[in-house]
Design a binder for these strands. Structure first.
Length: 222
DNA sequence: AGAGGATGGACCACGTAGTA
DNA sequence: TACTACGTGGTCCATCCTCT
């Protein structure tokens, strides 16, 4: 069982299609099919039911799915931890934003950020705030810039900023909604970043982008 | 019947281990 | 160190199956 096979498995599970998974992975469809076949032979079970043109996870596939996500996240975190040793800012950063922020506020900030840190590959998704928030919770996203905030899980960090424009990283125990005085002092945007894994919290690209975006948005809305 | 999607076979490129 | 054999993983192509 290798990470490439698991990536193919995740891509097929998420897209419900071998072809779309191949596009996502920049491979041909037979290559994805072979990766899945290899993985199925290794685990000794069918992972997908091929029902005509439709693809559905089998029971074994459903068992493997969260495990595969965890394995790939652990591998990626390990890479980041090693990269952090050298202090370099690089790697892939998956973030989501609402359409309004993404279209009207983020482009110049992201352009500036990528110019400053060309080694960082930004994987930007436009999602509704609820979905973006959920993406951070389930680990498919590393950052989300959202316009509303459901209950904040204790294992995630809310990065907020006050009306004065200063950056105010909230405690990990912060609950949403905050008490009235804090709510009054905060602007409308929140950034959620995963901090469940220690090395993830130290990821330079994520932290620096968070601070950059926060500072800029704070200035915009002062 | 045509289109779309998955599978299997043939072939190729590349990396690695073994050997002289 | 260079050569060779082998394994792995990719593409291309043909074929089959299902859906509209």
């Amino acid at each position: 069982m290798d990470t490439q096979s698991l990536q193919a498995f995740l891509a097929v599970a998420e897209t419900q299609s071998f072809s779309r998974a191949a596009e996502q992975l920049y491979l041909t469809q037979p290559a994805v099919s072979k990766r899945i076949a290899t993985l199925e032979s290794q685990v000794g079970a069918r992972l997908f039911d091929r029902i005509g043109r439709r693809i559905a996870l089998t029971e074994a596939g459903n068992v493997l799915l969260p495990q595969a996500r965890h394995i790939l996240f652990t591998v990626e975190d390990s890479r980041r931890a090693l990269a952090n040793l050298s202090g370099q800012v690089g790697g892939k950063l998956t973030l989501a934003t609402s359409h309004h922020i993404g279209l009207h506020r983020l482009p110049p900030l992201l352009k500036q950020y990528t110019q400053r840190h060309p080694e960082v590959e930004l994987d930007l998704h436009f999602l509704d705030s609820e979905l973006a928030y959920q993406g951070v919770l389930d680990g498919t996203l590393e950052m989300a810039v959202v316009t509303l905030a459901p209950t904040l899980m204790s294992s995630y960090r809310l990065l907020n900023f006050g009306a004065t424009g200063s950056v105010l990283p909230a405690r990990t125990t912060t609950r949403w909604p905050p008490k009235p005085p804090l709510l009054k002092a905060c602007c409308r945007w929140q950034i959620y970043a995963t901090t469940t894994v220690s090395c993830r919290e130290q990821k330079p690209s994520q932290d620096r982008l968070s601070q950059s975006v926060l500072a800029k948005l704070a200035c915009n809305y002062r």
